[in-house]
Design a protein around this nucleic acid. Structure first.
Lengths: 224, 224
DNA sequence: CACTGTGAATGCATTCACAGCG
DNA sequence: CGCTGTGAATGCATTCACAGTG
């Protein structure tokens, strides 16, 4: 789910036969390459890369081969060059993606503050909430707006990614606002399945399911 | 069909052979069944369940069949009974799982406050941090302890699940403390791969990767 | 050599399709 | 009938194994 997780997904026009799982691993490759680069390592083999990430060398080569031929026989992959290429493929090189957060509760606030997003070129430019108590407050340099303004704000700030951290009851409605306003990529943290048109890419992060999955295996291993 | 009962039982006894993806979906089934139960719906067919969750009816039946025969021909599944059975299988019926949090930053605090955990029988009984500023503070009724006390606290509070919300640099070390103290299930929110013995169940939640995956598809669909 | 890139083989997960049951 | 439970078929993802390359 990991795995999964993973997974709580839908068929969208598959981007030219690239396994979904492979796309998820691209980010891992970039991260490891960045680390290697920081250590002034110029070349890396698929085996080394695989070891570090808990994969097989064949899988690394296969994954990369979907996007082109980046390696050199006998030497491996040039760290810096591959990193740049993969960042380009991931769409995170030289640009910033604009995100909007709906739901400035505990989780939402944590997401606004999350360093990993900025580091990879994701920037929250909009935060909304229904709660009149929260509207107007400033969180991480962002003024919380009323949820009614969401469509307008999305257009004004050229939002490409919507992040849902609202209660289950509100999730579908807010999601539809995102979609109507033209957002085509959404991450949903509410523990409910959302209905979106096939043109919209949806990912679900379900925290309770992560723990329940673990509980399943714990309960089983205990029994024996 | 009753002729095949021994085969089903055989499957049930083996913890192996159950697709990991199926385990993740168990939680989804339970959630939907709870909703149906609240609406006083007594029976549900695999088709109805599938529709609601965005799956196929065959998949629902297959998933459930790994654990036994819960349905009635012509009528479907008895909502309440199936819900109870699945909760039992998931290990979340009538018991509480004890969790420990490492890293009481923004994300960690949000996890402590997350309602979905309590609702499903997960309870944080321990929270630790390295930051002297945070140690001693009370968060959600829990006194933050210094990380050095983690092994002792794990044993004293019978912790079964460890949750890592520490920075990348600290993650592996704290993880090892969990493992040494006997924790056999860990959720890792730090964007780094952790090394654990095979007896320990590890799940990774990587927030940046969720966004990057979306960026990949956005970048592609934009290009064409 | 040491390594990549990739057909072919394998292993899982999902879906089909239908016998069998209430 | 309507529906489950499940062999058989299909579809993906991973791994094997090796020809090909600098």
């Amino acid at each position: 789910m990991s795995r999964n997780n993973h997974r709580a997904n839908h068929r969208l026009s598959k981007s030219r036969g690239i396994p979904e799982a492979c796309v998820g691993r691209l980010s891992l490759y970039v991260r490891e390459l960045a680390r290697l680069g920081a250590r002034r390592i110029g070349f890396v083999s698929s085996r080394r890369l695989a070891e570090q990430l808990g994969l097989t060398d064949a899988q690394v080569r296969r994954d990369l081969s979907y996007f082109g031929q980046f390696g050199t026989s006998g030497r491996g992959y040039e760290v810096q060059r591959l990193q740049e290429r993969l960042n380009g493929i991931l769409g995170v090189s030289g640009r910033t993606w604009h995100a909007a957060l709906a739901g400035v509760g505990n989780l939402g606030s944590a997401l606004l503050a999350y360093r990993g997003f900025q580091e990879r070129g994701f920037m929250f430019r909009v935060a909304v909430d229904t709660d009149a108590q929260k509207v107007g407050r400033t969180v991480r340099g962002l003024v919380v707006a009323p949820v009614e303004q969401l469509p307008d704000l999305i257009r004004r700030h050229h939002i490409q990614i919507g992040v849902l951290a609202v209660p289950v009851e509100a999730a579908q409605a807010v999601c539809e606002q995102f979609v109507h306003a033209g957002v085509r990529a959404i991450v949903n943290f509410a523990p409910v399945r959302l209905e979106v048109p096939p043109s919209v890419r949806l990912r679900a992060v379900d925290l309770a399911i992560e723990l329940e999955t673990l509980a399943f295996y714990l309960a089983r291993s205990h029994a024996h």
